[in-house]
Design a protein around this nucleic acid. Structure first.
Lengths: 153, 153
DNA sequence: TTAATATTTGCATAATTATGCAAGTTTATG
DNA sequence: CATAAACTTGCATAATTATGCAAATATTAA
């Protein structure tokens, strides 16, 4: 039958539902829950699914539990990101990004999570981001890098 | 050896620095990097450290890498100031301090209240502090001063 | 439709991470 | 100071997750 894609999609959907509704601490437990919902897979498949979905295992004071990795969504958001930006400017030492009202924090997070050596750090207000470049000497490089990250041509 | 706590703190500091500066994909690699920086621990200790610090292993298209768990306030309570700090960096004109999520304001207050002539002022966001030094010429001094204030060796 | 190509999955196992326990240290208490 | 309690670490290994490979299934192209 050719409903394989739907089968995988619904399994993924169930996995996401489960992970958001209860604290699951390992894949064996996960597997069991899937089975209770009528879906039988091996631990191997589950491992692959979790990685594809960006579902990660985080430590907590009382053990571990799985959760959806929020920073993995940035690539999805990136397409709309450029629409939130009004301008990117700089002087000899700083880069300043102006955004639409209330969007600075969200844009800054993307820059932070890019983990670039070009960027020492950012501080965001409501509609303005200050970016500290690695060095004042090649601030143009940092600027180029930022534009790429934010999907601006 | 009498100062165990400092030993642990500085190891944690190094771990945080390493994880924020490069893509580390497993604990063996981590262990090696620590060793190159003069710190020898077993994989077991590293595993415990990473869980305490809320550093997690996330899947990426090209493998895995460790990162600081940004969403996790459920990570172990940190009472010491230096434990809230991920890295301290600088370029020619500014010093940038990265902290755990939501901790920048608290750390910045300590710097502000130190009333140092080395520091003109600070601006803190959620997890980043920008420190403006008295002068660009002796920024290294300011850096040293900050590390002392924050109890980082 | 058929052949070629690609995808998905399980199995077995490799790779990696977590942890019980005991030894050694440090800190707290009387 | 002496002793107890608490903490840290390594060792050995348990627990858990990732993956190479082959078989089965699905998709694409002709």
């Amino acid at each position: 039958m050719s409903n394989k894609i739907l089968e995988i999609q619904s399994r993924h959907t169930l996995i996401k539902e489960l992970v958001s509704k209860q604290e699951i601490s390992n894949q064996a437990q996960f597997q069991k829950l899937l089975k209770q919902n009528g879906i039988k897979v091996t631990q191997a498949t589950l491992s692959r699914d979790l990685n594809e979905l960006g579902i990660i295992r985080v430590p907590a004071p009382n053990g571990f539990f799985y959760k959806i990795n929020t920073s993995g969504e940035q690539s999805v958001l990136r397409s709309r990101l450029s629409e939130e930006i009004i301008s990117i400017d700089h002087n000899e030492t700083l880069i300043v990004i102006r955004t639409f009202p209330g969007r600075a924090q969200g844009v800054a997070i993307v820059l932070d999570q890019s983990n670039s050596t070009e960027i020492l750090g950012t501080v965001a207000g409501d509609d303005t981001i200050i970016v500290i470049p690695r060095s004042n000497k090649n601030i143009k490089n940092s600027l180029e890098y930022i534009k790429i990250i934010l999907g601006i041509n």
